[in-house]
Design a protein around this nucleic acid. Structure first.
Length: 475
RNA sequence: CGGGGCAUAGCGCAGUCCGGUUAGCGCGCCUGCUUUGGGAGCAGGAAGUCGCAGGUUCAAAUCCUGCUGCCCCGACCA
């Protein structure tokens, strides 16, 4: 294993794959496009997952698990859905040594199998709302894959809810996209635009789709979470009706929503630098690494005694830490290794520190070191972790804002997209105009932000526009 | 699915054009000693079906044919 990554400025794509592998987040699986999530990467995912899971439960959702095999006939029941997904599905044709009567699709998403079950479970408005989430793997036969960002198999959560009215479903869809915003911004320190997808970009089978869109270090957009209002499309496809309070049969209203291991890729590309990963303290597997330094056995004993006290203090306070007392490698080596892995804070403690009753704390985000007395260690660590969290968020937001340029005409638009960055512009075009822009520039409307308070002139058609949108090239 | 590149020790590579000692180098790994505050030093050691399958040849990592896999770019994509 070589010891450094390709510079971001030299080759961003290589920098990314270097980091994923050298920080030991993931490795390539034996089947093309598959990924092994290694323990360090999985710990990061688990932290993200636990935060999301808690927020779902706080808003009344429960977890369940549905099978990964979907009868082929289910996939064909919703027209747009099958058109959107059939080309990228893996299909099982044999089982038990025999050809199956009906091929089984490996779920690319679970709307169909879940709604086939909801038909059995929903009879009256008293059964609603039904708020179920599942944590699962899904498979999409992607042509071009990248670790975490787009793999053939990936992990995610998919929420599938059923409601008595469109308004309730809409409220749910909006509630979830707000949870995703909080997850991204307050925990992953990844600033996002929140808004609605255009018809061209929405989910296959949805009435409309909301998404959170983040800007990566190469100024490309990463769709990081989506929440769909499915209307009655799946209820009609699977004939799921309920008796409303006026004793009338009505189709059920649905939502679905998901975030995936792609978020890990988002964190890497939002915060990482040429030394490796930079992890937000709130989701970092280790918030702090302790590197003890000594020469003699006497010193070792003294230092480890002090380390034991520090450990006790941190354990009680739920600070996630690791002690790297490996004697086989030098301290300098450890510094670089843990920087590669993005641990927010490093604590050095050596003979000189013991004399002065202090430690050295070094921040991963800006490299600054400071001496901290034993008695104030705990409060300083807490304060630094919070400061790193907010500081890397601010930095990412400033970067995004600096690279989100407002334009008034198509020629400026092309320049910005060519140079890299998001375009913010008034829009009154239709799907045809959108497709033409994509063809000519590769940029798409990432979302129509919720915040709409101005009117202007469409940069493309010149017509009066009461909405503005975000354009960008995307992953 | 198109264009390009790559495949030799765990990792990174040289050797391939122009066939010919026992296939090398750096890092890592193992043993020992000295080291440890920004990627330690010395000594010794282990590790290779040269991606796979055919072919040419006295002789193939090297030449020929076919195949496979991965990476990058494009097309495609919630």
């Amino acid at each position: 294993m070589s010891i450094s990554v390709t510079k971001r400025s030299e080759d961003y794509a290589r920098w990314y794959t270097d980091i994923v592998q050298k920080a030991e987040l993931a490795d390539y699986g034996p089947v093309k496009g598959t990924m092994v999530i290694r323990p360090y990467g999985y710990a990061l995912w688990e932290n993200i997952r636990n935060i999301a899971d808690r927020m779902f439960k706080e808003t009344g959702h429960v977890n369940a698990y549905f099978p990964m095999f979907i009868p082929e006939s289910f996939m064909h029941k919703e027209a747009e859905h099958v058109e959107g997904f059939a080309p990228e599905c893996a299909v099982v044709t044999h089982g038990g040594g025999k050809k199956l009567d009906e091929p089984l699709y490996i779920r690319p998403t679970s709307e169909t199998i879940i709604w086939s079950m909801y038909k059995k479970w929903i009879k009256s408005y008293r059964d609603l709302p039904l708020l179920i989430n599942q944590w699962a793997n899904v498979v999409r036969w992607e042509l071009r894959t990248r670790l975490f960002l787009r793999t053939t198999e990936f992990l995610w959560q998919e929420g599938h809810t059923a409601h008595a009215t469109f308004a309730e479903a809409e409220e749910e869809t909006r509630r979830i996209i707000e949870i995703y915003r909080i997850l991204a911004e307050d925990y992953l320190a990844m600033p996002v635009y929140v808004g609605k997808k255009t018809d061209a970009e929405k989910f296959a089978g949805a009435v409309h789709t909301y998404s959170i869109e983040a800007m990566m270090g190469d100024k490309k957009a990463l769709q990081s979470g989506t929440s769909h209002n499915l209307g009655q499309n799946f209820a009609k496809a699977f004939d799921v009706t309920f008796l409303n309070s006026e004793n009338k049969q009505e189709y059920v209203y649905a939502t679905s929503w998901g975030v995936s291991t792609r978020l890990v890729g988002g964190v890497i590309m939002t915060h990482g630098d040429d030394k490796g990963l930079i992890l937000p303290p709130r989701i970092a597997p280790y918030q702090l690494v302790i590197v003890p330094i000594w020469r003699s056995d006497d010193q070792k004993a003294r230092i480890m005694e002090e380390v034991a006290k520090i450990k006790l203090q941190f354990s009680k306070a739920d600070i996630r830490f690791v002690v790297d007392d490996n004697e086989q490698v030098s301290a300098g080596w450890k510094f670089n290794q843990w920087e590669m892995k993005g641990v927010p804070l490093r604590l050095e403690i050596g003979p000189k520190d013991i004399e002065k009753q202090q430690v050295v704390l070094a921040r991963r985000d800006n490299g600054k070191k400071q001496f901290v007395a034993f008695e104030s260690l705990f409060s300083v660590v807490n304060q630094l972790l919070e400061d790193i969290q907010s500081s890397i968020f601010r930095q990412a937001r400033d970067f995004r804002d600096e690279n989100t340029i407002e334009v008034e005409n198509y020629s400026d638009f092309k320049k910005i997209i060519e140079a890299g960055g998001f375009v913010k512009a008034f829009w009154a075009g239709d799907g045809v105009a959108e497709a033409r822009i994509q063809e000519e520039t590769k940029a798409t409307i990432r979302c129509i932000p919720f915040e709409q308070n101005r009117k202007g002139k469409c940069f493309f058609t010149g017509g009066a526009a009461d909405t503005w949108v975000i354009f960008g090239k995307s992953y």
